[in-house]
Design a protein around this nucleic acid. Structure first.
Lengths: 212, 212
DNA sequence: AAGTGTGAACTTTTTCACAGCT
DNA sequence: AGCTGTGAAAAAGTTCACACTT
């Protein structure tokens, strides 16, 4: 078996951006675009964009450029966005409630099937059609439906949810709690994000701007 | 003037993680830690951690390790988190309302001073003590108070807010709208994030997991 | 003529491995 | 003896520049 060189993390980040920007171009009824122009709109240079796209396939036409529709189609497929995914939520914070109520996620193929919490007063609530169960009932839910991903939105102790989800064979986790964590196993993928992270990067930038 | 080698983006990302993990260690009353152990908790290897910290200073003690408290102190200072920042919000979506109501941001030194929208029905609302103004009134606010950062949480057309903020000399922007954008000028720093981005990275991971 | 796809050159980042301090 | 800080080596990622296709 030939070992295919795997996708660099930053290339993945950029491909996700290209997809979103293409989606927007399609809405604006733009049919065709060059790597130069698309790169400009994505904040990268065109050689980078072409190299990134070469991981996906030969999608352009020499001398012409890219078809917005075709490129979007192949990117979606490459990124696993050509079909729907089932999600569960762990930790019913205000952020969790926001996500359960957010219709945009469904429009992009991400469906919350159930939510879990450990606080008795939350169990049994129904938010935008999604029921909140006790975390101990996770086995029943994973037996009944196929769960692809979990989103953790608790405000503390994300480990409790992480361990339960990992034990039930959920391999992809978006951790939006304030505390990042990192799986031992490479079988499980965790994306950590918090608003404080993003704001801290900006505070670093501003501090250095003022000094120079 | 000697050009100091500037901080790689990924190093910055990791420093932000180290800070948060140290914060948690301090809460757990752990006084001292080795690079090996801290690296493990941050999902990196210890050489990487030590190299990253060398951008901040000589903060450890050979043969001993790092003082949690001291390291946290220096990291906070290095990242510009040793004082408070004034924020404004653009686009009063449910996500925007969530952020305005979120007390954790204040605890970490990020204060929303005002919010802006372009829809008449939202103007004049007060959310968690923060008033919503018409975007056209931005000049009055920026004259009255020093605005450091802006957070865009509209559900479409982020450019409208971006242009207004840039024109009023706001240099750091967190864009949480679905559409990423990239400033022409390097004087302005934009962080783009959306939940769909993060979930798409997970969908790519799952797609490839299943194939192998 | 225009613009992609890609080896090769270059640059940056990561990891290694050990001198040096406690 | 133990663990940091850091040059040097290795690996990875980016940019260049041009052959090639439409």
């Amino acid at each position: 078996m030939v070992k295919v060189k795997d996708l660099p993390e930053n290339t993945l980040n950029r491909l996700v951006i290209y997809l979103k920007v293409l989606d927007n171009l399609e809405k604006k009824r733009i049919d065709s675009i060059s790597s130069d122009e698309l790169a400009r709109r994505c904040g990268v240079n065109s050689a980078q964009l072409r190299k990134d796209l070469s991981f996906v396939g030969n999608l352009g036409t020499k001398g012409v450029g890219y078809s917005v529709k075709t490129l979007k189609y192949h990117l979606k497929k490459f990124l696993g966005r050509d079909h729907e995914w089932n999600l569960v939520l762990g930790g019913l914070s205000p952020l969790g409630e926001y996500l359960l109520s957010n219709k945009n996620l469904q429009r992009d193929g991400f469906y919350f099937m159930a939510a879990f919490d450990i606080r008795e007063e939350n169990i049994g609530k129904i938010i935008n059609g999604v029921s909140v169960y006790n975390l101990e009932q996770l086995s029943y839910v994973t037996k009944a439906i196929n769960v692809d991903m979990a989103v953790i939105t608790c405000e503390e102790t994300p480990e409790i949810y992480y361990e339960a989800f990992a034990k039930h064979n959920i391999k992809a986790i978006l951790n939006l709690s304030p505390l990042p964590f990192f799986p031992e196993s490479k079988e499980i993928q965790v994306e950590n994000f918090s608003f404080i992270f993003a704001l801290t990067k900006l505070s670093y930038f501003l501090k250095n701007l003022k000094q120079s």
